[in-house]
Simulated assay, not measured.
Amino acid sequence: MGTRIKLDVIAAAAHVSTPTVSKVLNGRPDVAPRTRRHIENVLKELGYTHRPPRPRRVGLIDLIFNDLSPWSTAIVRGAEEASLAARTRLAVSVIPDEAAVERWLSSVDRSRTDGVVLVTADLSPSHRERLAELQAPIVLVDPVTDPVADLPSIGAGNWAGAAAATDHLIALGHRRIATITGRLTALCSHQRLDGYRAALARAGLPIDPALIAEGDFAYESAHASAIAMLRLPDPPTAIFAACDQQAMGVYEAARRLGLRIPDDLSVVGFDDIPTAAWMSPPLTTVRQPLAEMAALAVRTVLSPHPTPSHRRTELPTELVIRASTVPPRRA
């Protein structure tokens, strides 16, 4: 009887029917998003706290990118393998701007989902609130900024990978080592830059601002930065690029200036996309466990005992040494 009275009170305060309140309290999906938000606000005002049961699975996981890049294939492959193992379908969406985010949120409100894996996401507070209304687990893969406290995230050991790449060049005898970063609005770019700096500092080598260029993970910007660096009076003998696409830009810059890789310039990338092994010469790079990161994210959202929300999981990277790095002709 007490529960019935409480439902009536909530329904009266929200100006909705008692069955509608019951649906919200029990996590039923057949309530309009705006109505659900209104009732939940009334519940808060009345001091009524509840934890609705997780809705029954619908057999669908959403994998969301804000952009597609050469390493997206590995992410999709890893997520698909984990989804197939769980007998769950995978829906892949690309939402590059605010309007696309709103369209996707509206569509998923209607269709429901068992979990959302967000790749390289930079979520606004309003979008985090909207995602929370889905009442489905959410995991971030390689978040752009420091992950928010209430969402688990999965990434790679960016700092360690960059330090290993720089250590490798130092061990070969390079002393003028440049780097082309990714966008410095991205968390991974700061981590890789910090790893590069730490390796130089450990070796007692100076950190020359002229040998640090900010890129944007793209071929074109890396090509322009490499041209400028290689035309310096005292140019670098090695360049660490923050991704393999940027390393391709460095290759072309060296070719245009009549330099040979690795004889005149050693190059290291990051990611180990498939084309890295096909470049001429094959590229030394840091392998990110992209497929493993995506598979872990899918298993996390489907787990009956999800990863604690405050936890960030980092998988180790691996330096893959190929033919683009050799000792310098000049130290």
Rank of each mutant, 00 (worst) to 15 (best):
T3Q: 15
T3A: 13
I10K: 04
A12H: 11
A14G: 06
A14C: 11
V16I: 11
V21Q: 00
V21F: 01
S22N: 09
K23S: 00
N26G: 01
R28H: 14
A32M: 04
R36C: 01
I39A: 00
I39V: 12
I39D: 00
E40Q: 15
E40S: 09
N41L: 07
V42I: 15
L43S: 01
E45H: 09
L46H: 08
G47M: 05
G47Q: 09
Y48D: 00
T49R: 12
H50G: 01
P53V: 05
P55M: 08
R56I: 05
V58Y: 06
L68I: 15
P70V: 09
S72K: 15
G78K: 14
T88Q: 14
T88A: 05
R89I: 00
L90Y: 07
A91W: 08
V92G: 01
V92Y: 10
I95Q: 14
I95G: 08
A99E: 15
E102F: 05
S106G: 15
R110N: 06
D114R: 10
V116M: 10
V117M: 10
D122C: 07
S124P: 00
S126K: 14
L131F: 13
A132P: 06
A132S: 11
A136L: 02
P137H: 10
V139P: 08
V141H: 07
T145D: 14
V148K: 06
D150N: 12
G157K: 11
N158H: 15
W159T: 03
W159E: 01
A163C: 01
A164N: 05
A164S: 09
D167K: 08
D167S: 12
G173H: 04
R175W: 02
R176Q: 09
R176L: 03
I177N: 12
A178M: 14
I180K: 13
T185S: 13
A186C: 04
C188A: 12
L193E: 14
D194A: 10
Y196M: 10
R197M: 07
L200T: 01
A203H: 05
A203T: 03
I207G: 06
D208Q: 08
P209T: 01
L211D: 00
I212C: 08
I212P: 06
F217T: 00
F217N: 00
H223I: 03
M229D: 00
P235Y: 04
F240S: 03
A241R: 12
C243Y: 08
M248D: 03
A254Q: 02
L257T: 02
G258K: 11
I261H: 11
D264F: 04
V267D: 00
D271S: 07
D272S: 05
I273V: 15
A276E: 02
A276L: 06
M279T: 11
S280P: 02
P281W: 05
P281M: 05
P282R: 03
P289T: 05
M293G: 01
M293H: 02
A294Y: 03
A295F: 07
A295V: 07
L296R: 12
A297G: 11
V298A: 08
L302S: 11
S303Y: 11
T307V: 09
H310F: 14
R311W: 09
R312K: 04
R312G: 03
T313K: 09
L315Q: 02
L315W: 09
P316I: 02
L319S: 01
S324R: 03
R330D: 10
R330H: 14
R330V: 04
